[in-house]
């Protein structure tokens, strides 16, 4: 199966405010280097924090020492600035090492729901769970199957191409989970897979199986999920439980 030489304009890496998610950024940089794309770090700042310092009972519990302390707006702002500087410094280093362009943006909102509008049609959204805990994320992904979700929509071909390209880059197999809402969608999936030939293993699923998908990924030992973000939403598939597991990542097509 052919894949476009530069199928993605940008790799958007969503990182949460509490982590300088070095491993996620490292992963994003390698994927950006694979496809010669631009890396963009999306620093997600939970919007609920905006009002938190004003609550009379608010107290911050330290992440490491569990100590309690007052949370005031200025200190919170300062903490965010420090975090942003650290992210930028890491991006510069990654850009230099991988010879890519890398920038960062602050995104108020939530990790899962508020990123999609930022992404363009050719962008890919890299979402990691607790990748920061993983010490050898790239090595561990090797030879682990990449799960790709196909829904019989027009985005399937691109999603599959991206998954196949990622598989080649990481020496991993691609396993397609086909979720068809109707017969026509099923035929479109079949056609897409037909075009891919033997390079993709097939894993037929009924729409009702969506809730069990995450469990299926685990059973196959998948580390990666590649899917269309909008299709996931349409099928009410929440990848968060999968991504909350250690060393998991998702590439979401807008």
């Amino acid at each position: 199966m052919n894949s476009p030489a530069n199928p993605q304009a940008r790799i958007l890496v969503a990182i949460e405010s509490h982590l300088i998610d070095r491993q996620a950024l490292q992963l994003g940089a390698e994927i950006a280097a694979l496809w010669q794309s631009e890396l963009v770090a999306l620093c997600v700042a939970a919007q609920e924090l905006q009002h938190s310092p004003a609550f009379p009972f608010v107290t911050e519990i330290d992440r490491v020492s569990a100590a309690r302390r007052e949370l005031d707006a200025s200190r919170l702002l300062s903490a965010f600035r420090v975090w942003r500087r650290q992210v930028d410094a890491q991006l510069q280093r990654l850009a230099s090492v991988h010879r890519i362009s890398a920038t960062s943006e602050v995104v108020p909102g939530r990790l899962w729901s508020d990123l999609l509008p930022i992404a363009g049609a050719e962008d890919l959204l890299l979402v990691t769970g607790t990748a920061a805990f993983a010490r050898h994320p790239i090595a561990r992904r090797q030879r682990r199957p990449i799960a790709v979700l196909l829904f019989g929509t027009k985005r399937d071909a691109r999603v599959l191409a991206i998954a196949a390209s990622l598989g080649r880059g990481f020496h991993a197999d691609t396993v397609a989970f086909a979720l068809a809402a109707d017969r026509a969608a099923g035929e479109r999936i079949a056609a897409t897979l037909e075009e891919a030939g033997d390079t993709v293993a097939r894993m037929p699923c009924a729409p009702g199986d969506a809730a069990r998908l995450v469990q299926a990924f685990e059973e196959l030992g998948c580390r990666w999920l590649v899917a269309s973000r909008s299709d996931l939403a349409a099928f009410a598939i929440d990848p968060q439980p999968f991504l909350m597991r250690p060393n998991r990542a998702a590439l979401l097509v807008p």
Partner: peptide
């Protein structure tokens, strides 16, 4: 809610 350095409740 997670802050850059810890946790708060709202």
């Amino acid at each position: 809610i997670e802050t850059p350095t810890g946790f708060v409740f709202a």
